[in-house]
Design a protein around this nucleic acid. Sequence first.
DNA 1: GTTGATGATATCGGTCTTGATCATGCCCCG
DNA 2: CGGGGCATGATCAAGACCGATATCATCAAC
Lengths: 89, 89
Amino acid sequence: MIKTDIINNVSKNADITRVKAVVAVEAILDAMKESMRRGERIELRGFGVFQVKPRKKGIGRNPRTGTEVRIPPGKTIRFKPGKDLRNLR
Amino acid sequence: MIKTDIINNVSKNADITRVKAVVAVEAILDAMKESMRRGERIELRGFGVFQVKPRKKGIGRNPRTGTEVRIPPGKTIRFKPGKDLRNLR
DNA sequence: GTTGATGATATCGGTCTTGATCATGCCCCG
DNA sequence: CGGGGCATGATCAAGACCGATATCATCAAC
């Protein structure tokens, strides 16, 4: 599924024009990106939670050469599925 | 950030009524949930990719009692940040 | 049609996930 | 706008799985 599919689906199910659907999807993704960039946690009950977490790691490795590579500390985005998405087992 | 915040943001930036924004957000999350439930991969260039992956794990533990708990194999949803979200380090 | 982001791949270390339970707080509904 | 229902966070241990690297082909997005 790609962005276009979501837009079609939204345009249809939310009963708004395709153009509005495009803008809405863009707006949502944008809002989420900005929020995450600010290091915030995004909680959507029933769907899941996006959480920006600090990464402490220190040693990586270049699979191609086998050389050790330092992994500078940084941040990672973790997505934790909500109740509705945890029952796929 | 919670669902309400996104709705406000969308309503404002996409220039659609608050009600439409609510429906749009719900529609999008719903579309994504359904897709993932079908085991599909959701790719949104520049944002990230949601991928349903099999999980092998086997042993967990109840923190309170220390009792081992079986964790049957199942599926997990992995979110891989896109280019725009990988530069938060 | 064009542009450029993403997948795949290999290796090894160490962070993180997973199930159960209680308290907190998000979200629905009046 | 406030109350209540119920999803979610924190917690434990042990083992599974991620992440770093570079390059080409593929395909999402405009």
